[in-house]
Simulated assay, not measured.
Amino acid sequence: MSKLTSRLALAASAMALAGLATTQLMAHGDVTPQAVDTSALPDVGEEWLEQNPYSGNEKAIEIGASAYNQNCARCHGLQAISGGIAPDLRYLELGQSGDEWFIERYQHGSSHDGKVYMPPFGEVLGQKAGWAIRSWLETQYTDE
């Protein structure tokens, strides 16, 4: 085989592999939420709260970090740094207004024109997991 033929074959193989990798990354399909063990956290009751009861709670932050990585990072990015597809959650306001926005999206998801941009996680993962994730997100906050 000539050098030119070898290089063309190598280039074609590289392009084919790149195409497969892109297809796999772009077409992750339905993703099953991963359960979150919140048994170490204080109970919050059945009624959805408007403010984070776990803000600053080290155990909640630890659980929230794991829950985020398992359920949120695929869209919102590692360390909450978005690659542009979903909101960068490092900029989510602290305090009650940020809590209200977060829990509304977490509980009900987001959809526009019949397209689901974020599935609802509230009934799937529960309130305790949501507030644990929010607690971890507070540690990633930046206003820059």
Rank of each mutant, 00 (worst) to 15 (best):
L125S: 01
T22G: 12
R7S: 14
Y68G: 12
Y141T: 01
A27I: 05
T139A: 13
I133Y: 00
I63V: 15
A40L: 05
Y54W: 01
M1N: 06
P42I: 04
A21N: 08
R74S: 14
A21K: 03
G19D: 03
R134I: 06
G19S: 02
L94W: 07
Y141V: 06
Y117F: 03
M118E: 10
W131P: 01
L20H: 10
R105L: 02
Y54M: 03
Y68N: 14
A14Y: 03
A86E: 12
L20V: 11
Q140K: 14
H112R: 08
D143A: 13
A132F: 03
G83D: 13
S97E: 02
G130D: 02
P33M: 00
V31T: 06
S110F: 15
G122A: 02
G109D: 05
I103F: 12
G130M: 01
K128H: 04
A132M: 01
A86M: 09
S55Y: 09
Y106S: 08
K128V: 00
Y106I: 09
E104W: 07
Q70H: 10
S110C: 03
E138V: 10
E46I: 05
I61M: 11
P33V: 01
E62D: 07
A12D: 04
S110L: 14
M118D: 04
L10F: 06
M15C: 14
A40C: 04
Y54I: 00
R74F: 13
Y54R: 08
D113T: 13
R134M: 05
A18W: 04
C72P: 00
Q107E: 12
D99L: 13
D43W: 14
E100C: 12
D113K: 14
G19K: 06
T139R: 07
E47L: 12
R105G: 02
M26I: 07
T139P: 07
H108Y: 13
G64F: 02
L17V: 10
R74C: 11
A73H: 05
Q96R: 11
Q140I: 09
V124W: 04
D113A: 14
L137Y: 06
D113N: 15
A11T: 08
T23G: 13
V44I: 14
E46P: 05
H28I: 13
T142H: 08
Q127W: 04
E47I: 12
A60M: 09
T38Q: 02
P53I: 07
Y106N: 14
E47F: 13
A60S: 12
P119N: 11
N69M: 09
L25D: 01
D88I: 07
A12R: 05
Q79D: 15
P119G: 15
A9N: 04
L78S: 11
G77P: 08
S66F: 01
R90C: 02
K59C: 00
P33E: 00
M118G: 06
L4H: 01
H108L: 11
G130F: 01
Y91I: 13
E138W: 02
K128C: 00
P87N: 15
A12K: 02
S97T: 15
E47A: 13
L20D: 11
H76I: 12
V36W: 00
K128I: 00
P120E: 08
Y54Q: 04
T5M: 13
T38S: 07
L8Y: 14
S135D: 09
E47P: 00
A132P: 00
M118T: 09
G19E: 07
N71V: 03
G122W: 05
P119E: 11
A73E: 11
L49P: 08
